[in-house]
Structures are given as C-alpha cells and as structure tokens.
Nucleic acid binder design. Structure first.
Lengths: 334, 334
DNA sequence: TTGAAAGCGCTACCAA
DNA sequence: TTGGTAGCGCTTTCAA
C-alpha cells in the first residue's frame, strides 16, 4: 500500500494524504480523520504515522537476564526511565562482544532508539556512536561514552578484611568462567591484606549459577587441608555452596564461612542468612538514567562523566569468628 | 547528508553509492569499502545501512521484570529466539493495559519489530495487529492472535488435592493485589474438593514479593483459629511467609504447611525446601517462539492456535502429613 | 482546503 | 564494474 493507492481509495490526491499524515495545517479535520481511519482499516496507518510515538526510546544492552540480579537491575532502569516518560527496550548480548557490537549498531542506527545504556559490556567502544551512550561497568573503560563504574574491588577488599579481622587466614574463592574479573580482584585483595594465596583454594567451575557453587564448593571441600572461609563470585553460587555443605554434613559457619555477592533477595531467607557484598544498584541506575536523559535532551551536553560507586559488605550469619572473642567483628558495616 | 552528496564526496555516481549500501553484486569490494568508510566518517552510515541488520526482531511485552520468575521466562524466550537467529527486544508494561496498547502500537508500526510475544497481558486485543502476535496467558483470550495458556488451575487443584490427601481441611491462601486470578482459582479448587472456604483464611496483602508474604502470613497466623496449610500466590510470598513463621517461633511444616508457586531457584535452598506448583516455562517459551517464527516466515500461516500447557506440583518438605500414616502422601508427583 | 505539478531522494535497469 | 537515466514514492509549493 502506497500513499498513491490510499489517495485513490479515499478519492483525494496524494498531496492531501501526505498532509493528513504530517499534521499539516493545510487540511480540514474531516478529510484528515477520514483518511487516517481508512489507513487504519488497511493496516498501513502505522507505516506512515511515523515518529509520533512521542516517548523517548532508551535501549538497554545487558549481558544476560537470567536470575534475579540482572532482572532487578533492568527493572530499576525501567522504572527510572518510565518516571521520565521514556520507554525501555532491553536486549541481551550473552556476554558476546560481537553481539554487543551488532546491538549497538542496530539501536544506534536511524530511528531505532534515542539513547543506549550499555551494561557490563565485553566490547571496547571504538567509534563514537551517533546517539548518546552511557556505559555501566564492563571490561573496558572508554572515552567514547560516559562511564559509570561499580567499584567491586572495594567490596571484595572489605570482605577479605572482615574475614581477616575474624581470624581467618586460609581464605578460598569460588567462581566460574564468566567471573574472571572478580577472581583477579580477589587475588589483589588477598595480597593487599598480606594473606597467602593458595592455588588450590581458588576454583572456577565450568557450570553456572547454583550448580557452579555446588560444584566448586565440592572441589574445595574434598581437599585434605580446607580453607576456613570462602568468597563466592555471586550469591547464587554461595547458595549452591551452602547446599553442598548441607549434603556433606558440614555446618555453616562452624565448619566453613561463606560470603556471597549481590545481596539477592533469597540471601536473607536461607537456612543461614548470607553475609554478602552489595553495590547500590538503584543508585547506579538512577545515575545512568539521569545521564542518558540529560544527553538525549541536550545534544550539546557532551561532558564525559566518569562516576564510580562503592560497594560494601552486608553482615549476616554466614561467617564465624575464629578469634575467640564472643562477638563477630562487625567493624565495617551498615 | 544524502546519497547524492555522498556520491559527490566519493567522486562516484549516486547509483554506485546506492549499490554500496544494498550489498549489491554490481560493485567492487574496494569501491564499496571506500564509500562505506566515507559514510561512517560522516556519521550517516547507520542511516543508510538500514534493514541489513538481518536478524528477525521479536518484541516481548512483559508485565514486569523484577524478580527471578519473569527474568528466567524472558531469558528462555531470548535463548529460543537467538537459536533461530532472531533478536529479542523486551519492554515492560507494569501491568497497565494502556501501556500495553502503546507498546503494541509502537512495535507493530513499520519497521520496529517483525513479531510480538505478548506475555500475561491485561489488554484485550481489539484490532488485528499488522505483524504476527502470539499471546501467552493474560486476562483475556483473543481471536486476534495465537494464544498459549498456562493452566494454573490444574496446578492449584493438585495442590489442594494433595493437602486434602495429607489430612488438611483448614486451608488458607495468601496473595496480593496483582494475583486476583489465582485467588479465584484457589476458591474454585476448594469448592471442587468440597472443602470449606473461610473468608478469614484468605489474605491479600497490599505489598509485594517477600514483604507481601510476611505481611499476609502475619495476618493469617495471628488469628485464634489458624489454618493448618497455606497456599501462596508465588514462591517469593511463600519465602516471606516462611520468614514470618521463623520469627514467630512457628515451625514448618509442623505448625503450618506451605505451598508456593513458580519453583523459583531459591525454593530448593530454603531452610525447609519448598513444595511448589510449577508450569513448564521452557516448554511454553519454546512453543511461543516456534509459533511466532512460523508466522513471521510465512505470512500466510494464519491458523489460529490455542494451546494449553498443564502445571503440576513439585513435592518437597514444606507440607506435613496430618493423617497419622508415616509417609506423606506423594500420590501425584514427578 | 484542495490538488496539479515540480522537486527530491532513492532504486532499478541497462548500456558502455 | 560503473554510471546515466527512467521511474517510483513522498513532500512541498502554489494556483484555484
């Protein structure tokens, strides 16, 4: 269906039909409504009534969406975007830089989105995209977009310090293929605290989520000389680890202490409430959405921002105090 | 910037530039690359390299994304869509029919998507959209789109039967504002099983998620004459309810039995592993994606489908057997 | 307010 | 492989 054919059907000229779709003043209300309703009946209204959707379109590109952490993160972004009258479109990259490039190219191309929030990317942004981009976390920092970073390092540092203060020296780490950066930060935190890094105390599972936690914890606990505490790359892994200790007849925190990351909602509802590292996701989302709207509303707002948000430890019951003093040391929390 | 001007800059004709953007065979690789890189430098590459994204665009409209249930659902859809070479764009309606209408209009209009999967909608589809739509669940069944239904009723029936078989007669329900349909199904299941519906045993919290479960369970348990079992509208509510009983010094399942819905991953990792109702979301997503691709690939595939998938009970440890026989009655499971 | 006609931008075709 | 040209579809202008 073309405007010409529509004109024939309506018994008017092409120009008139064109005017109907462009909200021109050169047309009577009646003719306009007649033409538009005709177009709707023929299912081509949407095709020509372009651009009048009105809302600002913000594309969010996320490495994954499975599990509560990214879901809540996306929900926070969505809420903030809607508060400002925008609409979120979320796409998943599956941790693939190639796919991220595809998605940015797609959303960055004419008319598909007005701005992009790029979460935890594996891609280094090379070319300046032609719509505003705000990057949250991710492997590579960039000068091509505003950048908001989650300082996971500070959270892991706190966790290691906290364990040390509670008398732990043999501290292990469990992660998986996609959490290599946390593994690195763990090693740094151990060195900073002058604690001995034991290769055998660091296990990266080939599985994911709770299964990965179970698997890695099993490998760790079946050793002769066990660590007294374990930091897990995220809460779901800690949950799997807890499950393994249960089945193996080990008690937490008496036999091993466990610290997770993300403060997933279930963490507080477990058998033994989980001590965990949290990075303020709401605040992060708020900042990101503020930024992207500022840039979408004002195309001359080019000041590159570089914001870093700290993370911190939430102390619950999954860490034992080995120092002999009655209370666990809560030096750094809340 | 127009193709003409670009042609002038490149020192070639318009047709050549046009060919460069349309992946024509009538052009040499060198000329093509030269033109495209020129376009990139002028920031108009994206504008003309339209439609070559190649992937089928499937929009998913979801009432919410917070929490693991919808997130895993969306992740399943995403995986299936990617398996078939498509790309998912997810938008959230916040349970608002008006917003759903907006989103369908947006994605349905020219070029924004090739198909729509509409999950748990509050909107009754009135007009035939001009791209394929597959509806999953939702308040209103429609003849305007293919429809896949989750038969939650059968799961709730099973749960009530299972409780009855284990000697429970005083069965309560906890829900919230957005789970009215489950409340209705609970009432029907009770009637079907000739069990007495007690107004005081059904509480709908004004909160949401774990908080709602805590709140509703509190109201239920503070009564003099308590139910012996409670069905929660979803697992997060059951988790909140468990937390309340813990704090109130009640033991599960000795003092009250609890059944949840959705089989959220944490359900198996709780203090007392949760008996819950599950409706095969992977299967559901597979069916939905199969359908939408069939319709996108073949525009003459118009057979309206109407598929219903059953739900079932997963028995774990949160229900007590009041009949006196030693084993809980597992008549219907796995 | 309407429509004829000119204009613009892109694509398709075909000769070189 | 390239480019001239015709053609198509939409917008804008301007006369009626």
């Amino acid at each position: 269906m073309t405007l010409q054919k529509l004109a024939k059907l309506a018994g008017v000229s092409v120009s008139t039909v064109s005017k109907a779709f462009s909200d021109s003043r050169e047309i009577s209300v009646e003719t306009k409504e007649q033409i538009l309703s005709l177009a709707k009946r023929h299912g081509c209204f949407e095709k020509y009534y372009k651009g009048k959707f009105g809302k600002q379109l913000v594309a969010v590109i996320c490495p994954e969406i499975r599990g509560e952490f990214y879901a809540d993160f996306a929900a926070d972004l969505n809420d903030k975007i809607e508060e400002r009258g925008g609409m979120m479109m979320l796409s998943v990259s599956g941790f693939s830089a190639e796919r991220e490039e595809d998605l940015i190219r797609y959303y960055g191309s004419f008319g598909h989105a007005d701005g992009i929030i790029f979460v935890s990317g594996s891609l280094r942004l090379k070319t300046e995209p032609n719509i505003p981009v705000v990057q949250i976390g991710g492997k590579y920092k960039t000068e091509k977009a505003d950048y908001i970073d989650i300082d996971i390092a500070s959270g892991i540092d706190q966790a290691v310090e906290y364990l040390k203060a509670n008398g732990h020296r043999k501290i292990g780490y469990i992660g998986e293929t996609l959490t290599a950066s946390k593994h690195r930060l763990f090693c740094e935190a151990m060195r900073k605290n002058a604690l001995r890094l034991e290769e055998a105390y660091m296990v990266n599972s080939k599985m994911r989520f709770q299964m990965a936690g179970f698997d890695a914890m099993k490998q760790l606990m079946e050793q002769k000389d066990r660590p007294t505490a374990v930091i897990a790359a995220y809460d779901y892994m800690a949950m799997g680890a807890l499950r393994y200790t249960q089945e193996a007849g080990l008690s937490i925190p008496k036999d091993v202490s466990v610290i997770g990351m993300n403060n997933v909602s279930a963490a507080a509802y477990l058998d033994v409430p989980l001590t965990t590292i949290v990075s303020h996701p709401e605040e992060l989302c708020e900042t990101a959405v503020d930024l992207i709207f500022k840039k979408m509303d004002n195309q001359f707002y080019f000041a590159r921002q570089d914001i870093t948000l700290k993370s911190r430890l939430i102390v619950r019951d999954s860490v034992a105090n080995l120092t002999g003093s009655s209370e666990p040391s809560r030096f750094c929390c809340f």
